[in-house]
Design a protein around this nucleic acid. Structure first.
Length: 935
DNA sequence: TGGAGCACCTAC
DNA sequence: TTAGGTAGGTGCTCCA
């Protein structure tokens, strides 16, 4: 089919005619991306002929924008829904709550404003659903005071209610009842083992989520009611997000499928906007057919602004000139909507629709209308959270485009910008802007990459090149304004650029399978999709903990965060530094910390606090003493919650790993690898959670026992291996553990070949494993041959695991090549030298290469832009003249080179190439070059 | 000049 | 209102 026929009259290289004027410094043959776009056109032809539309021409919109410009923007027509005879099934993708008026016929309070859970989702047929869930109220627990009976309930409730009311500074919602109910319930604290002693707790149900905190505070401060003396109550589960509370109680997990049985829900407003009582909905576990994913609409967009020369665009001053949008259904290969909104005219682009506006305010308003029409479930792009969306919103405010800031799915709710700062040790302080868009998940690709990937550069260009081997269209930022001020051909050039910037995030999302991976994570951990990008690690563990606890009638206490003493972590075995030209076998404990917790049943619920063992009359057979002296009951007395959670996570990981083995597609392999890694990280963060002293439920007894066991185990492993594999026992040589970190040992077995090292390694791992409690298991991982051990946490070697004949890769740990605080020149130099040493086994060659590079550096043969080493040195470099900076940097690189590649003591086998020797041979030329350079 | 203290990044 | 952990190498500044 002729992809160009729609474009009759317009030459393909049309832009060449426009190579006049002041912006003539760009190349203009059609880019690969334009050809790619044109290919989409072919695929679209049939659909369009069927639907009888001509979607991809230039449309001079002027004032005439209508959401009906292209029927494909809309979702498929929704079939009529009869609550009495139809079941409604949808995949829930976002969940929040709001305060709303009571809906007659729904469970819960009968008057006033009530919290209503709102679930957004999509059906199999691609129709969107907004489901209001009624009747669920927030609650928390306190232990019932001594002598409390059901006769005291109403008095307690009345007193607490009036205390909370009195505590309110203002009562703008006109609340008259704060405490809805107080019930006596039999529960048990999850913190510490106390002989399964179930006790009376008061379950206090409040009218609104935000009333929980004051009620908890008042009870803590000291509360008096009836004839009971004033006393302070500790609270339980008063710090749980309302959404999580609901999800846990109704067994809903992130992104699961929800069923509303016929006769149990009602249609309230437009199609598929429904109301249901919270006990009526059915949540399907994400298994079997319910693992599927609905045809979600993913919108990716990018904006261009006409900034002033050298000034970062400001929304108050600089206009938005283009917005490109691409919409793709999850699971399909290509976007089915490709459109660009431009200010002023723009030549046509095969494969995309161009909508031209004469007024910027019209462009903005129309784009918002477009978003509402497309009704995307997921909104993505590159840095949209902190740039594009805030810019559009601020720009629309400046131009007073009143209908713009309604971008969510709920009518009448305005999208508002807020600043938030999020701080964690893991990610440092991160300032972000937050924009509410009810019912749409904002999935900023930059944020995903910042969280999940350690990269040297996070520009869209660098990231695209890294993952897709593709780059942005070549348009310098500085000429954007000129292109806009040119003619319809230069604006076309800009539009192609803009389209590509909207397209790349979609491609990346697809390639990295972000959406699917995040959904899996939401399903495994039970939190909403949005939490995964906006919150930390802890909430995932809390969600799992609560679910597991509820099954056993356990409640989670609220603890005051207080920083305490740090505890001891893992052991790093003192390395026997050197270059090893013999195979070194590496044995690892797989999932060390999780398996320790499982093997020894370490949990909040199994912890014996001081004196408990005697008080409960436990015999020594009932509990264990950990290396740190803490006591935990065995699983025969009570199985811990944390071991249960870990078993779930690790069996999911096992499954992912099995799929990984079967998979042949290299990229899907990578993704499955990512998933199993995510599950591993989740399992590891359970340990981290117990050690997080400023956290929801720290328990240092658990975390320090875990690391204590770990320290013991790695020492024992070293001793076991070195005691069995000796000449005295008939082996070729005495084995020696030359290094080890946390959960691994590197062993010199004294064998000559990789295959022999693998054999002995496997045998040794199995034998050592038999000394430990399952599921603790030492595994043979790999052989390094040769192996360069520079220092603790710094080494390199050729990595053999699958085959004994060829190495999989050169593995570098902690060396400049993998660190991001060095310039690429250093990384490349060290990398080449390591290759020369390990693969070619030619240390002299490595020295020669280093000399060459340093000489190039000193003679100004290397671009200065490559030379920024660290932040500190950037400053130094700027303070010196360029040539002097070269010398400084060359010295730095030289010392870095020596330390990294020749760190060895003279006794090690470097035949005739010890550091001092090489250093001497380099020196004369070094001095000469230095003199030349500083001349 | 050498060591304490810090920032940064990584290993696990 | 919210935040996983410790060990450890390296380069830099500051100070005695």
């Amino acid at each position: 089919m002729d992809a160009k026929r729609r474009n009759s009259g317009l030459p393909r290289g049309g832009a060449s005619q426009a190579k006049r004027g002041k912006t003539g410094d760009w190349e203009d043959s059609p880019s690969n991306f334009e050809e790619e776009l044109a290919l989409f056109e072919e695929a679209d032809m049939e659909a369009e002929e069927r639907e009888g539309q001509a979607g991809h021409d230039v449309i001079p919109v002027g004032e005439l924008f209508s959401a009906d410009l292209n029927p494909r923007w809309r979702r498929p027509q929704a079939a009529p829904l009869n609550p009495d005879s139809d079941t409604l099934v949808f995949q829930q993708i976002d969940l929040d709550y709001y305060l709303g008026a009571v809906v007659a016929g729904m469970p819960g309070q009968s008057q006033g404003n009530v919290p209503i859970i709102r679930m957004f989702g999509v059906t199999d047929s691609g129709n969107s659903v907004c489901c209001h869930v009624h009747g669920f109220a927030p609650y928390f627990y306190i232990p019932a005071p001594n002598g409390f009976t059901s006769d005291h309930l109403s008095e307690f409730k009345r007193e607490l209610n009036s205390a909370v009311l009195k505590d309110m500074r203002s009562n703008k919602d006109n609340i008259s009842v704060t405490v809805l109910a107080v019930d006596i319930t039999r529960k048990e604290s999850m913190y510490g083992y106390h002989g399964k002693r179930i006790a009376d707790f008061l379950c206090i149900t409040m009218a609104m989520p935000r009333l929980i905190a004051p009620a908890k505070r008042l009870l803590e401060q000291g509360f008096k009611f009836g004839h009971f003396p004033i006393q302070s109550f500790s609270s339980y589960e008063a710090n749980i997000d309302f959404e999580i509370r609901f999800m846990v109680d109704s067994d809903v997990v992130g992104c699961c499928w929800i069923e509303l049985p016929k006769g149990k829900y009602r249609v309230s407003l437009c199609q598929y906007e429904v109301d249901v009582g919270w006990t009526q909905l059915i949540s399907h576990p994400a298994e079997g057919e319910y693992q599927r994913i609905a045809p979600l609409r993913v919108l990716s967009f990018d904006i261009e602004c006409a900034g002033r020369k050298g000034i970062f665009p400001e929304a108050e001053k600089d206009p938005v000139i283009q917005i490109a949008s691409m919409v793709q259904r999850q699971g399909e290969k290509e976007p089915f909507i490709r459109t660009v909104f431009t200010l002023q005219s723009c030549s046509s682009i095969v494969g995309s629709q161009v909508l031209c506006f004469t007024k910027e305010s019209q462009l903005l308003q129309s784009w918002a209308e477009f978003v509402r029409t497309v009704d995307a479930d997921i909104i993505t792009g590159y840095n949209i959270q902190n740039f594009d969306l805030p810019y559009l919103l601020n720009r629309a405010a400046t131009l007073k485009v009143k209908l713009f800031p309604y971008l969510g799915r709920v009518q009448g709710i305005k999208s508002v910008l807020r600043d938030s700062s999020f701080q964690s040790k893991q990610m440092g302080r991160r300032e972000n802007k937050i924009l509410n868009m009810e019912g749409r998940v904002q999935f900023d690709l930059l944020q995903v990459l910042l969280r999940d990937y350690k990269l040297r550069s996070y520009t869209l260009n660098a990231v695209s090149f890294h993952f897709l081997q593709e780059q942005k269209e070549d348009v310098q930022h500085s000429i954007i304004t000129d292109l806009q001020n040119g003619n319809e051909q230069t604006r076309r050039r800009l539009a192609v650029y803009c389209l590509k910037d909207a397209y790349l995030p979609l491609r990346l999302l697809q390639k990295l399978m972000c959406v699917i991976n995040y959904m899996e994570m939401a399903r495994v951990t039970g939190v909403p999709l949005t939490y995964l990008l906006s919150r930390g690690q802890q909430i995932k563990v809390v969600s799992q903990l609560l679910r597991q606890a509820m099954k056993q009638g356990l409640v989670m206490p609220v603890v005051k965060p207080e920083g305490g003493e740090d505890y001891t972590g893992a052991t790093v075995i003192e390395p026997e530094k050197g270059y090893y030209s013999v195979p070194i076998a590496t044995l690892d404990f797989s999932s060390l910390y999780p398996s320790i917790m499982m093997a020894h049943n370490l949990c909040y619920t199994t912890l014996l606090q001081k004196g408990s063992a005697e008080k409960l009359g436990l015999t020594p057979e009932d509990f264990i003493k950990t290396p740190t002296g803490d006591l935990f009951v065995k699983s025969s007395v009570r199985k811990g919650l944390l071991p249960d959670i870990l078993e779930d996570l690790l069996s999911a990981r096992k499954k992912a790993k099995a799929e990984l083995k079967k998979e042949t597609d290299p990229f899907k392999k990578q993704v499955l690898d990512g998933r199993q890694l995510a599950l591993k990280i989740s399992a590891n963060s359970v340990y981290g959670f117990t050690g997080a002293q400023v956290g929801k439920l720290p328990c240092l007894e658990i975390s320090q026992s875990v690391t204590g066991f770990g320290r013991q185990m790695i020492e024992q492993t070293k001793q076991l291996v070195e005691s069995k594999y000796t000449t005295a026992n008939g082996y070729q040589a005495d084995a020696k553990v030359i290094y080890g970190d946390t959960d691994s040992v590197m062993v010199k077995l004294g064998v000559d070949t990789v295959s022999r090292a693998m054999e002995v390694g496997r045998e040794a791992a199995e034998w050592v494993s038999s000394h430990f409690t399952p599921p603790i298991k030492l595994e043979f991982e790999k052989v390094y041959y040769p192996y360069l051990l520079i220092n603790k946490k710094r080494y390199a070697g050729l990595y053999f695991s699958s085959s004994a004949d060829t190495h999989d890769k050169m593995d570098c740990k902690g060396i400049e090549t993998v660190r991001r605080d060095n310039c690429t020149l250093v990384a490349n130099l060290i990398n080449t030298c390591l290759q020369t040493i390990l693969i070619d086994r030619d240390p002299q060659g490595a020295v020669a290469h280093a000399k060459e590079v340093i000489s190039d550096l000193l003679c100004n043969r290397i671009d200065i832009s490559q030379l920024v080493i660290t932040k500190e040195l950037t400053r130094t470099a700027q303070e010196y003249a360029a040539k002097q900076a070269h010398v400084e940097l060359a010295e730095r690189i030289q010392s870095m080179f020596w330390r990294t590649t020749f760190p060895l003591t003279p006794s090690t086998t470097w035949n005739n190439s010890s550091p001092s020797h090489c250093s001497a041979s380099l020196s004369p030329s070094w001095e000469r070059a230095k003199q030349r350079a500083s001349y």
